[in-house]
């Protein structure tokens, strides 16, 4: 299979404190990989490093074979990596539709002159942006369309905000989607629904997905492969069953069995 993301000997140091330590990680095209680990294991730092918000102190990150270390976050997104945030960070005063429209920025190119002259290309592109946004939002059933399209994002319920964040990431038309705790704060019903959607994100939209999650049901249901992080290092990887019986993993989770739900 085609190797989409390949991380080699990654190290991140914050003011003398090592947050990532000689980490190796890869994702193949079409995979769904879960990253789990106890709190403070460096999972979110891991995402931040991939998306360029944090610069690694050593090691290399290859996306489709070429290094993305040192690129601006926007350039990385343009290459095809999109993410959601653990503590939902929507453009709260923009409408649902606008949130998804704005995320198509790097896939569109009409500049000031097109807008000023109202050229045909400009109108056509606006139309496409709008249609694409509708298409992306329709993925979540009736949750985000209809009258909700023109509501500002801050009036949405918590679960809908998480959905909109995923929609916004989809709007950037990525190849690799990084989801940071997508079901955190959702009730069981909503969690189940979203778990199904994550599977459809791969089968229908063709995204390769890396997901950070604490909910082991979700991890078991969606992942092809599970990677366990602790203290910024990979301590185990493999299928869910392999990992969940790994003694090192059990130890990392304070000796309690991982199967605990």
């Amino acid at each position: 299979m085609n190797r989409l993301l390949d991380i080699r000997n990654l190290g991140v140091v914050f003011g003398g404190l090592s947050a990532m330590n000689d980490l190796n990680f890869h994702v193949d095209e079409g995979e769904i990989v879960s990253v789990i680990g106890p709190n403070g294991a460096g999972k979110t730092t891991f995402f931040n490093t991939i998306t360029g918000l944090v610069h690694p102190t050593s090691g290399d990150i290859l996306f489709e074979g070429s290094s993305i270390v040192g690129l601006d976050p926007s350039a990385i997104t343009a290459l095809g990596i999109a993410r959601t945030f653990q503590n939902v960070r929507l453009f709260a005063n923009m409408t649902v539709l606008e949130n998804v429209m704005v995320s198509q920025h790097c896939r569109t190119k009409q500049g000031a002159f097109g807008a000023l002259l109202n050229t045909k290309a400009f109108r056509q592109e606006e139309q496409e942006i709008r249609e694409r946004a509708h298409e992306v939002l329709s993925f979540f059933g009736s949750r985000l369309i209809g009258y909700r399209l023109d509501q500002p994002a801050y009036v949405l319920s918590y679960a809908n905000r998480r959905r909109l964040e995923i929609a916004r990431a989809m709007g950037t038309q990525p190849r690799l989607l990084l989801l940071d705790e997508p079901v955190a704060g959702m009730n069981p019903k909503e969690t189940e629904e979203l778990t199904k959607l994550i599977g459809r994100l791969r089968s229908e939209w063709g995204f390769t997905i890396v997901i950070i999650e604490h909910d082991m049901n979700v991890v078991r249901d969606v992942s092809d492969r599970v990677v366990v992080l602790d203290h910024g290092e990979t301590i185990a990887q493999g299928s869910f069953d392999e990992v969940s019986s790994d003694p090192q993993v059990i130890e990392a989770y304070l000796g309690r069995p991982v199967e605990k739900k």
Binding site: T51, L53, D72, P73, S74, A75, T77, A78, A82, R83, F85, R89, F91, A92, N93, M94, E98, M101, V102, S103, H105, C106, R107, T108, Q110, G111, A112, G114, A115, L116, N118, F122, E125, E126, I129, R168, A169, G171, T172
Partner: peptide, 29 residues
């Protein structure tokens, strides 16, 4: 008026809201 309703105007809006997220969503801020 034209710029506000355009792709550039939306990018400005996003930057005003949250610059680092705008950057992460592929806008060259």
């Amino acid at each position: 008026w034209r710029l506000e309703g355009s792709r550039l105007g939306r990018a400005w809006m996003a930057i005003r809201e949250d610059e680092s997220v705008a950057e992460a969503m592929g806008i060259n801020t």
